[in-house]
Design a protein around this nucleic acid. Structure first.
Lengths: 206, 206
DNA sequence: GTCTATAAACCGATAGAC
DNA sequence: GTCTATCGGTTTATAGAC
């Protein structure tokens, strides 16, 4: 077998990747804390410990920076989804995804879902890498939703889109923030409560 | 019976009240469209048809303007809540409030719920008239929640705060926006779907 | 109270030296 | 690529004439 193109990155490339990851870490945290509009490039630069101008050597604009952060987040979600045991029930897989998202949210690393009418939303939809990941995740979730409706663990009369959008929306549910602020529940409790109300509702006897 | 203080406002006062109401209408719409951060005072002034400086004769700051708008919204909610037939089941009263809120949301007159970590949130919590209305509404909803849990129409094992926060959060549920953007459902359908998933969840056979 | 004009601060993005 | 310094534009809020 012949060695083809080198798989290993050069030291320069590794260092660049490391720096960009550090930037995205800061962006992720700031997006979760204050959202896109209130996050400033000065803040990001200060948080990473570099000059603002250096940021623009890595990312063309604030929008692209946020898009890259969101893309990395979707990639984490995809990794989690693909790593779930194949033999688990589809409903349990869906719950596992929401559980992961809410946990990330409580940990302060879940960027705020861009408002439907925000200008950020348009920038995201014009960023192909983001769209690709979102499509992949939507396809995977849609598959599980169909399976769960077929085996009657999810309501078959509910339109699939409603279930899909609800799952996405609950990943940024402000209810989790309110409960965390209250201080009466542990993060584990909050996750369980959100999962329960999302899937079983509030009218059950449970 | 002796006529005491005049109930009727002077013409000047009426005109002032009318103008301020027009301002709050514009603010309400803009808050729903773009949120607090992206709404500019220039826009508000242009929308009302007056100069920006005139805005500051009515309201001290952008924060107080938004707070006044939110306060008026809560007053509408209180009016609705107090107007509900007394003999209705507590669960139905709760659903009626959410139904009203989601309908307002779809109509584009529901200001975005301020992010938990936003600076706007602090301004709101410092504005007494807002706090008063919020307390009143919370008290009324809390009463109905307790009654609904007592008659077993709401899960008794679910902490009341979770139900309360969920009701507040669903009033600004982005799921409604997504479904409206999709264009496959009428506004009436969307409201029904949100109400259903909020209270009955997604696992039922219905 | 309403207007025009402007002050003061902030932010995204860039220039240019190293 | 990283830095300092700065441009150009936008926004909140106010001054001052009417």
């Amino acid at each position: 077998m012949i060695e083809t193109a080198p798989v290993k990155l050069s030291f320069k490339q590794q260092q660049l990747q490391f720096r960009e990851n550090a930037i995205l870490d800061a962006v992720n945290r700031l997006l979760a804390q204050k959202g896109f509009d209130l996050m400033t490039m000065d803040e990001v630069a200060a948080d990473v410990g570099i000059a603002k101008a250096s940021l623009y050597k890595h990312f063309q604009s604030k929008e692209q920076l946020a898009a890259a952060s969101m893309t990395r987040l979707l990639e984490s979600a995809l990794t989690l989804a693909h790593g779930l045991p194949e033999h688990h029930a589809p409903l349990d897989k869906l719950k596992a995804v929401v559980r992961w998202a809410v946990t990330e949210h409580l940990g302060g690393t879940m960027p705020l879902l861009p408002s439907t009418r925000s200008s950020t939303q348009q920038a995201l939809l014009a960023y192909q890498p983001y769209i690709d990941r979102l499509s992949s995740l939507t396809e995977q979730l849609g598959e599980w939703i169909e399976q769960a409706q077929a085996d009657r663990s999810l309501s078959a009369s509910l339109p699939g889109e409603v279930i899909l959008y609800t799952i996405y929306a609950r990943s940024c549910d402000p209810v989790a923030d309110f409960l965390q602020m209250g201080g009466a529940f542990s993060n584990q409790d909050i996750v369980d409560l959100v999962i329960h109300t999302t899937f079983e509702g509030m009218t059950g006897q449970t």
